[in-house]
Design a binder for these strands. Structure first.
Lengths: 223, 223
DNA sequence: CCATAACAATACGGACCGTCCCGTAAGCGA
DNA sequence: TCGCTTACGGGACGGTCCGTATTGTTATGG
């Protein structure tokens, strides 16, 4: 790169010339948020953002490479109620995660939330190379918060020490993603059941004196 | 509608005039498949389809309402190796589902498979109203096959009778979807673990004479 | 032969794209 | 204070693709 344009340029170079306007920056992100939640990703265009923000298109392109990059920043900068909070810790991992999932599901009733998630999926689809990175940025905090709570559950001996917490996390997030993307009849699947299943799958088990039924392979378990 | 244009028009109306060309129909779907697997959904356009199929644009619009509708038909007509097969039944539901998931993951290595799935997500995103229906059509067969195998597992007493099979199915499909859409480093998450967790979560449990640890809520279980 | 409708091809206005250029505004060093 | 440099709003530009309309041709049934 001859001149630092996008991304962080916190190297030893002193910025010369007129500095970038924070007001313009903020106006762009707010306009993007508004258009995204009202009209969805398909109706979102750079020109529409520029017009609503009262900004030249170049001012947008000077900062971001593409529409999906702007959307990513909107999310990362906290302009949307993405609700990436860490689950609470009341001592019961099942209850905590069920409450957390209920919060996520409740967020989906916000106006434009479903359209937003679908739009992010579309944004990732037309980034292609950036798709994985975009998802990582967007779902990373959620993943970390979830996995941290599960790790605490392991420390509290509620979950197996050898449990694959990554897989469990992906199962929960994947279920929510699938629900939002695909299932229009939102009341169909009981999200409490999903958490119950996953937590049951990585939770401690109790041995039956009579032993397991014949033909039923016992997963590895540490007492 | 004054004249039946799209969808099924198998009512009592006798078709008059020149009938629609099957060759054109087929050429459109094949061109769509090729462009979709080679260039992804973003590079797919009605004009590109028409050009590649040697067809006028009107011939496409006469049949389908939008780009996403064409894509949906391509998938539904079996022009793509979607791999919606029912899991085998060897008697061990864990082994069967792990093998099935491995097949799905293997399919993701096909050229364009990931781009295809992401494209379908994008297609659903800009259909909005049709998004749920499109997903249902696409994932419906997969869901049914998976749920059927789980139901067999219940009959074979490997799974709990009161298990929420819908939730379990969504957890598995959601994990795969999340994996394909989001996680570019495909080797990160062990898919066997996911199946193990879900099956463990709806499988039979064995009671410990000493009882569960204090503070650990026992999920309902039927002996 | 005649009515009807699908066909390929192409023209059309419109929406956005991404880049470029204008005149102006805002910092900085000399 | 004066250049130098860069960002600003605004808008022109060629380009792609949209979805529709038109034209002349072709296939089918009455």
């Amino acid at each position: 790169m001859s001149r630092p344009e996008h991304e962080s340029e916190r190297d030893s170079e002193k910025p010369r010339g007129r500095p970038r306007s924070n007001l313009a920056h903020q106006a762009i992100l707010e306009a993007t948020r508004d258009l995204l939640t009202s009209g969805g990703y398909e109706r979102l265009s750079i020109e529409a953002i520029a017009a609503r923000a009262g900004v030249g298109k170049q001012t947008i392109y000077r900062r971001w490479r593409s529409k999906s990059a702007v959307v990513a920043e909107v999310v990362l900068a906290g302009y949307l109620p993405i609700h990436a909070g860490t689950p609470a810790d009341t001592g019961d991992v099942l209850v905590d995660l069920q409450a957390w999932v209920r919060e996520q599901v409740a967020w989906h009733t916000y106006p434009g939330a479903v359209a937003l998630v679908r739009g992010l999926a579309a944004a990732a689809a037309d980034s292609d190379a950036d798709a994985g990175r975009l998802y990582d940025q967007l779902t990373g905090p959620v993943r970390e918060g979830l996995m941290h709570r599960l790790a605490v559950g392991v420390q509290q001996s509620q979950l197996r020490a050898d449990a694959d917490l990554e897989a469990a996390t992906d199962a929960i997030i994947g279920s929510l993603l699938f629900r939002v993307l695909a299932r229009s009849d939102t009341s169909s699947v009981n999200t409490d059941s999903i958490v119950e299943i996953v937590i049951g799958g990585i939770g401690k088990r109790w041995r039956n004196p009579a032993g397991p039924p014949a033909g039923w392979a016992v997963p590895p378990d540490a007492p």
